[in-house]
Simulated assay, not measured.
Amino acid sequence: MLSHRKVYDDDQRMFRQSVRRFVSSEIEPNFERWEAAGIVDRELWRKAGESGILCAQVPEEYGGIGDFRFNAVVIEECSYAGFAGPTGNFTAHSDVSCGYILDYGSENIRKTWLPRMVSGEAVCAIAMSEPAAGSDIRGLRTRAVRDGDDYVISGQKTFISNGQHCDIAVVVAKTDPAAGSRGMSLFLVEADRPGFSRGRNLEKLGHHSADTSEIFFDNVRVPVTNLLGQEGGAMAAMMAELPQERLIIAVASIAAAQKAFDITVDHVRQRRAFGSVIGDMQNTRFKLAELKAELQVGWVFVDQRLAELVQGELTSDRASIAKMWVSEMQGRVVDQCLQFFGGYSFMREYEICRLYADARVQRIYGGSNEVMREIIARTL
């Protein structure tokens, strides 16, 4: 990764060393076991909380640091280490779900749950996607019907990161089906409420150690006080929060792409073919030169957008550009890097194989890249 990046100060640089130690001591020794199991140990969350790497953007009064740049450091280090599963776990909790509670939860909700999320005592998921509603969230069918001082929630969600471990979930449901995009609301739902159930842990192409589940709501009653923001305000809230989610996907993508590039440079310096080191061949050098250029351009662009996010200036279209371009670039980089490994690249035991599989979803979640193109096109 580029050194002396202006978006970070000395506090984040010191924090980066702490995150690297955590990744080395707590994730690396267990990673293959978690990949095989399809889920991390719950203990990882407590240890991550103790190390201060969860929900760092939360203000100090709730136990955090108060600066999203620390979140970005966590994702960069986990992604560069090649651990996409735990990266996805942490992202769903810290970078996606947390913002809805921090920005739209009542003071009582914030005081109750944010310190627990920071400490790792409570794991949070965000329940938006449904079998018939992915990038087009307006097609969701989950309903929340007001009944006195409660809402009664019924429906099904799928592809939910942290679905097996979550203690709470930020849930999107329709409160007024006739109102279109203004008829959706956000709720905080505790996983121990009657009617809340988890489906199977889904098997995926990549990100194997990130538990991803179906979640079911069978007349789950939550108090009106669990409403996040205003009734009917879900779409506005999501439009405000999604740029951050899309930027962090770009952060994860470029760090993982950099890792693929770095291990490939090391590989071609050692591998021989036709009597020569393949790293000395012009085709190899030119291909890697192109990838290096793309990576350096990408890092600068991502850092610019991260600075805008911290300053409250990140727009939806610029976040969409970052998510679209960097995730597409990651695909190009990892595909070309895999080619240099030859037949070994197709073996799961080789890291480049896992990096290739893990990269594919980056172009899908957080809003597919086709949706990103539509958002960008609206600004033309």
Rank of each mutant, 00 (worst) to 15 (best):
Q12Y: 04
M14V: 12
I27M: 02
N30V: 08
F31K: 11
F31Q: 12
W34C: 06
E50H: 09
V58S: 01
D67R: 09
F68N: 06
V74Q: 00
E77D: 03
S97D: 00
S106H: 03
S106A: 04
N108G: 04
P115F: 00
E121S: 10
A122V: 14
V123D: 00
V123Y: 00
I126K: 00
S129D: 13
G134F: 10
I137A: 14
L140Y: 00
R143F: 08
I153E: 06
G163E: 00
K174G: 06
G195E: 08
E203K: 15
F217Y: 12
R221G: 14
N226R: 03
L228G: 01
G232N: 11
E245V: 05
A255N: 06
D262Q: 14
D262Y: 08
V265P: 15
V268S: 12
A273T: 13
K287F: 03
A289C: 09
V297L: 13
Q304H: 07
L306I: 14
A307T: 12
A307D: 13
E308F: 03
L309C: 08
V310K: 06
T315K: 12
A322S: 14
M324Y: 02
Q330H: 09
D335Y: 12
E351Q: 10
E351A: 08
L355G: 10
Y356K: 15
D358C: 09
D358Q: 04
A377P: 08
T379R: 15
L380C: 11
